[in-house]
Structures are given as C-alpha cells and as structure tokens.
Design a protein around this nucleic acid. Structure first.
Length: 125
DNA sequence: CCGGTGACTCTAT
DNA sequence: TATAGAGCCACCG
C-alpha cells in the first residue's frame, strides 16, 4: 500500500477551471496506478480504500480527468463493481478501453471483464 | 447560494 | 429478477 500525501500545490492543474486537484483526486490516481498489469479494480474498492466507500462517484469523477495526468493513469483498469466497462465512453474511441485491457491480458466480453473475480485487485494488497 | 449532473453502489419494493 | 430511490460529494453555471 502506498503512503499518500497531499501535496496539492505541486500538482498540475487538471480541471478545466485550472484549479489544483484535490487530495482525493491524487489518491485516486495513486491507487489506480498501483493496479498491476492484467488486473482490474473498482471505483468502490478505491473509494473504500480511501475511507469513503460511499463516494465511488467521486472516483469516477476523478477518472474523468485521469487522462490529463502524467504519467497517465491506467483508467481502463478501473471498472464498476460488476466488472463492466462503464467508462468506455470516455476513452475517445468506444472500444479503446476494451482493447487496452485485452492487450494487457484481461479478457473482455460484452463490455464486461471475464472472470472478473479472478482478475480483481484490491488496493490493500 | 442553489440545483443539476455524474466513469457508483447499496437497499427496498 | 427488475426497477426505483437514496446516499454520496465535487464541479459548474
């Protein structure tokens, strides 16, 4: 697990308004980047790991700006609790998210990760 | 300041 | 089994 800091001022502005990202956002990216190749996690798992289990929506909101981050956040490894690629519509190309996952060894069928329980990765690991 | 919106999830009907 | 509603909280106009 990673020790998470809140150096908001050092971070690049990610939001359209140009404000600095909130620590919650930073934490989300940090966790997302910890997801190993060929594994996936969920919005809820990240939220829970950050101590805000009921704020899964905020995780999704954070991912909305994930692609502006450097290094890039592997947002394709974050799916909803059923393993469905709910964020596929935010990758520019509708199939990009699925293609990225399959490229990493994660089988996807009908917008859902195959054997989701097996490839699921919990942040606490 | 208020209300709408959302890459979510859980509970109740 | 399917739908609907609520909780959550940050952003935006």
């Amino acid at each position: 697990m990673a020790t998470i800091k809140n150096n908001n001022d050092k971070l690049p502005s990610i939001l359209p308004s140009g404000r600095k990202e909130a620590s919650f956002f930073e934490q989300v990216y940090e966790v997302a980047r910890m997801v190993p190749m060929g594994r996936v996690t969920t919005y809820g798992a990240i939220a829970e790991y950050l101590g805000a289990k009921k704020s899964a929506r905020m995780v999704g909101w954070a991912m909305n700006a994930a692609h502006t981050q450097t290094p890039p956040v592997p947002a394709q490894r974050v799916v909803n609790r059923k393993g469905m690629l709910s964020g596929r519509g935010h990758f520019g190309e509708p199939n990009l998210m699925q293609e990225l996952l399959e490229k990493e060894g994660v089988a996807v069928e009908k917008d859902t990760v195959v054997d989701f329980e097996k490839v699921f990765w919990k942040p606490e690991e």
